[in-house]
Amino acid sequence: MRIDAHHHLWDLTAVHYPWLMAQGGARFFGDPAPIQRNYLLDEFTADAKQHGISGSVHIQVGAEDPLQEARWVQEVAEANPHWPLVQVAFCDLSSDTLAIELDRLQSLSTIRGVRQIVGRAPSEDAQTGTNALLQDPHFLAGLKEVARRGLRFDLQLIPELMEDTAHVLAQVPELQVALCHAGSPHDRSAKGLKAWAKELQLLSALPNVSCKLSGLGMFDHQWTQQCIAPIVQTCLTQFGQDRVMFGSNFPVDSLYSNYTTLFAAMETLVPNDWHAAVFGDNAARFYDLKA
């Protein structure tokens, strides 16, 4: 079973996404105008099925009402039993009402984990203030509660935050963590990639952390297979065959390429004898996703 371990869906008539519908400003990932429209399961699967993918993991994507988004994804999954679909929802792990929020999420059968973004991009993090989570004892307590419940945590951050994050995660060794977008190597110069690879070692050294080959176009909108090859190779080397997963990050990464181009590049860069693990088995095990 091949799995896309990181994608999004949205129905703009069902859920409101303030970041997506904002007008007049480009984000670190580019101009969202082309994706300011419904992106539903039929469109996603039409692309994914061409490459043998037959199940997927939906990742929260900044809905105004995160619980409403999670419930909508649950409805999509129930309406499409032929397509195994599980989800990672948003939850504020520093909230005083964390237990209540997690109880509500866990009432949904598709919930496998939560994501609270720690870092998006240097140009935006100062405005969002999410970097401060790493020094918040409530956030650490929240991670421990997520682990206690048997949920996973999807981690999105930038290389500059990896050292502090590794220190936090080392205190929750039982928590299964998926590093989104290879840790967002935003500086694609030789010096920048060297620094990212060094910081990445602090996370890859933790046996409970896995890595997603996803979102590599967000900081390089003219990416090619050749230019992402060092990133993919570093992730494969550091995390090994059993801790790497493929994710398309569609429709966000559709701003820079089509699904076929993206998948072909990843399929070429990952060794043939690792394909079963990276394109399916690891995600199936990590997210408990069954055909």
Rank of each mutant, 00 (worst) to 15 (best):
S189W: 07
A190T: 15
C211Y: 02
E174G: 09
V172A: 15
V209R: 14
V177W: 15
G192V: 04
D220L: 04
L200G: 12
P207L: 02
L193F: 09
Q201Y: 03
L200E: 05
A197I: 02
G215N: 04
M218S: 09
V172W: 12
G192T: 03
L206E: 07
E174P: 00
E174L: 08
D220Y: 11
L216A: 03
A197D: 12
E199K: 06
A195M: 07
A205G: 15
H186P: 09
G217P: 09
W196T: 05
G192H: 07
L175C: 13
C227Q: 10
R188K: 11
A195C: 05
K198N: 14
L179G: 07
I228Q: 13
Q176H: 14
R188P: 00
L203K: 12
L216T: 07
F219E: 03
L202T: 06
G183L: 06
K198R: 15
L216Q: 06
K194E: 15
C211D: 06
A182L: 10
Q222M: 00
K191V: 07
D187G: 01
Q226N: 11
K194T: 08
C211L: 05
K198V: 05
H181F: 10
P207D: 07
P173I: 04
V177L: 13
L216F: 14
S214K: 09
I228K: 09
W196I: 02
C227W: 02
K191P: 00
T224E: 11
I228R: 08
L213N: 12
W196V: 02
E174T: 11
A205D: 08
P173S: 01
L216I: 05
S184M: 10
C211R: 04
C211N: 04
H221K: 10
A178R: 01
V177M: 13
E199L: 03
G217T: 10
W196Y: 08
A197C: 10
Q225K: 10
A182E: 10
Q176I: 05
A205R: 09
S189F: 09
C211A: 07
A178P: 01
K191D: 13
P185N: 03
V172R: 08
A178M: 07
L202K: 15
Q201L: 05
L193Q: 13
S204Q: 02
L206G: 06
V172D: 10
L213F: 13
K194W: 02
E199M: 01
L179F: 04
D187N: 10
D187R: 06
L216Y: 13
L179I: 02
L202Y: 12
C211I: 01
P207V: 01
W223S: 05
Q225S: 11
C227A: 05
L202I: 01
M218W: 11
E174Q: 15
A205M: 00
N208F: 04
S189N: 09
A197T: 08
Q226I: 03
K191Y: 07
H221A: 10
